[in-house]
Design a protein around this nucleic acid. Structure first.
Lengths: 251, 251
DNA sequence: CGATATTTTGAAATAATTCAAAGGCAGTGG
DNA sequence: CCACTGCCTTTGAATTATTTCAAAATATCG
């Protein structure tokens, strides 16, 4: 019986539970099982490129552990970071034959790679999987809309506050079922220039905004990649869009 | 035989061909036909609200004629326009029970309203419809990414150029099969403050950017809502992100 | 045609960038 | 183990893009 289990599935048994695709994929259909068996585990180091904009789109990636940035490069050295993607989020959906964005590892990363064709077939084979995947896409759109609102309507100061609130929710989500606690200790795996490119600001402005929030006692940094929220209410007053509902999935 | 055709379908026969949903909906399935028959035509005047953020999400709207803006309102009078949506684009997808955005008519508008439940069922019933709809969602994400890049990385001057290029492609798309010509005569159904709220700029800055482009001979306005592109190459040099592939669908 | 809203332009104020430099932290090799 | 190197972060001062405030010109609507 062990020899009937596909190699990839065996290898990935531990990690699979962490991927959002594995979570929503319907393994009651033959295509669903096939998709599951065809996935491969890929590991990356900090700084590695998982996907490169312009490359032929062959796989859907499902982040199991670690964090990546999704970005797009302009002609003159400009770069826009479109999002930071962590566990239980996926990457690689494209309407064209090529990836529109680059994906870079901010930490060491374990990802599951699903071949695009098998992925499509599994979606076609299961209305439920299709439905859940569609829901993830809609949530990505809603997250992009939040981002657009932040960049378009808020000043630097508020953008940073909104960014922290956003990370807070994202990290609360990935901790679901965990030993609770530490909701207000935010990990920032990205460097300041990533944050700047995410918000359309310079590193200096990002740094100044953090300093401002520190100075008025709203946040505290033990080191520059770990932020403690001291006054969540005031932080929400500055950067809150009402609530920030939890959103999952990312592109 | 005529009495077997559903009333709504009869009434909407002329208009249906123009909606993107009718275009991609698979009427070979019973649910597909049902969806088609359940749609109703709605007409709006300039300024009317088609959907209001926070209202219960009951329908998917498919714009047949006219243009609308999709926007989100902040607490302190701020407003972010997320997109301008014209013929052959749809609205109303939401991951929550309520619409996340408001939709306002910029011109008189004819739209087809599909009940959400019937819409979901039709998607479940047809893998092809589901696939095409998924593709529209991915294209919306890609359009949002273009928008984020524009707001985050470009200066006012370039944003306006990019905006014009974007409209140009959108309008070229909706003219497909038309008597050709006039690709470089851009209609601007929205007012300057809509453009400002779309790009995160003030009306004054928008106006100044247009004036700048006029002065260097790149564009010309016959009236403030009709822009002629005189030098497309220079416009692309300023606001072009490489290409701007044609994108369809919108949220 | 008059009244109202939109667009444009100007001048002053401000937020953010650019340029510049110092301080902190991590990794490498003597 | 410490010092050196390189990168990241922070802070300061000058510059610039955009906003704000204000008013005139133009278009729109009843």
């Amino acid at each position: 019986m062990p020899d009937k289990v596909p190699i990839a599935a065996t290898k990935t048994l531990g990690i699979k539970k962490q991927g959002i695709i594995a979570y929503i994929n319907d393994e009651t259909t033959p295509e669903g099982r096939l998709l599951s068996s065809l996935s491969q585990v890929r590991t990356y180091q900090t700084g590695d490129l998982l996907l490169k904009e312009g490359d032929t789109a062959t796989h859907i990636l499902d982040i199991a552990t670690g964090t990546v940035s999704v970005s797009r490069h302009g002609v003159n050295g400009r770069r826009q970071v479109l999002g930071f993607v962590g566990a239980r989020q996926f990457l690689g959906a494209a309407s064209t034959p090529r990836y529109p964005n680059s994906v870079t590892a901010l930490t060491s990363v374990q990802a599951l790679a699903y071949p695009k064709d098998a992925f499509s077939k599994a979606l076609d084979a299961s209305a439920l999987f299709s439905q859940k995947f569609r829901d993830l896409l809609v949530k990505i759109i809603e997250a992009r809309d939040d981002h657009i609102y932040t960049i378009g309507q808020r000043v630097a100061f508020e953008q940073i506050a909104a960014f922290l609130l956003h990370l807070r929710i994202a990290q609360a989500g990935s901790k679901m079922g965990d030993h609770g606690g530490t909701l207000d200790l935010i990990k920032l795996p990205m460097v300041r220039s990533d944050i700047g490119d995410y918000l359309g600001l310079t590193v200096e402005t990002v740094s100044r905004a953090f300093s401002q929030l520190k100075q008025i006692g709203i946040i505290h940094f033990s080191d520059s990649h770990e932020c403690e929220i001291l006054d969540i209410d005031r932080l929400k007053a500055i950067g809150g869009r009402d609530d920030f509902t939890e959103r999952r999935g990312a592109l």
